[in-house]
Amino acid sequence: MNRTDTRPRAVEIRGLNVCLGGKRVLRNIDLDIGTGELVALIGPNGAGKTTLVRAILGLVPAESGTVRVLGETNLRSALPRVGYVPQRLALDVGLAMSVREFLALRRPSTRNWFWRRHAELDATLPPIADELGTRLLLDKSVSTLSGGQLQRVLITFGLLDNPELLFLDEPTEGVDAPGERTFYEIISDIHRAHRLTVVLVSHDLSMVHRHASWVVALNGRICCEGAPDEIIREDALREAYGLHVTPYHHHHHDPTAQGHDHGLDHGHPHVH
């Protein structure tokens, strides 16, 4: 985000350093994420993308630096307005939990789900459950969901109670290529329709190029940031990835042609 930009910021990070297991993973991170942006964090494996998201959310401790989320220095005050879809699309299957019960756990209004009838709980679900097709899965056990179904359930979970800020950490892992494209289109639609700020960790440079409004290239530190056209370029990517990376852009995708375009390699950068 341009520092002269006066728009309110969803996330402000200053001088953030994070060590994990005695190793410095993030060094001196200064980052602003503007309200209403769809910001993509890109970088090679081990670049600290997930650690950055987890540090913002208070899931890993910062060694030094400050993080302000939705204007709050006290993260706990901001969390009710934040949604999160974690990296590993997995829920512990130790409990016989239905999707309906799982979704009820997030919201204070349905914390008494144990004593309430299904119809009552279903009536409290927001329209996003219909848009994502999650309503059809309510009776299913979370342990029997496919990767794509679990992804929809977790996104619905993240979007309950209309958050202002959504973090998606490589949310298409374990999802097939058509499902991946559909996912990015859904997120892009939600981002536009609700003016939701989205922070997306992704390896898919083509999807990032198409949908992100701002791109941050990370490799232990912020290598560069800017509009997708400025960052998804050979010279800029070389600095972040330390390799020769040829960005491969999709041709304009016709949504009506969905399901016919199964090119698995589409959208992935060429690394030499």
Partner: peptide, 14 residues
């Protein structure tokens, strides 16, 4: 139940 299903999600849920 939420902590058992996913501790990180429980943390972000406040």
């Amino acid at each position: 139940s939420l902590i058992t299903a996913h501790e990180d999600l429980a943390h972000v849920a406040g």
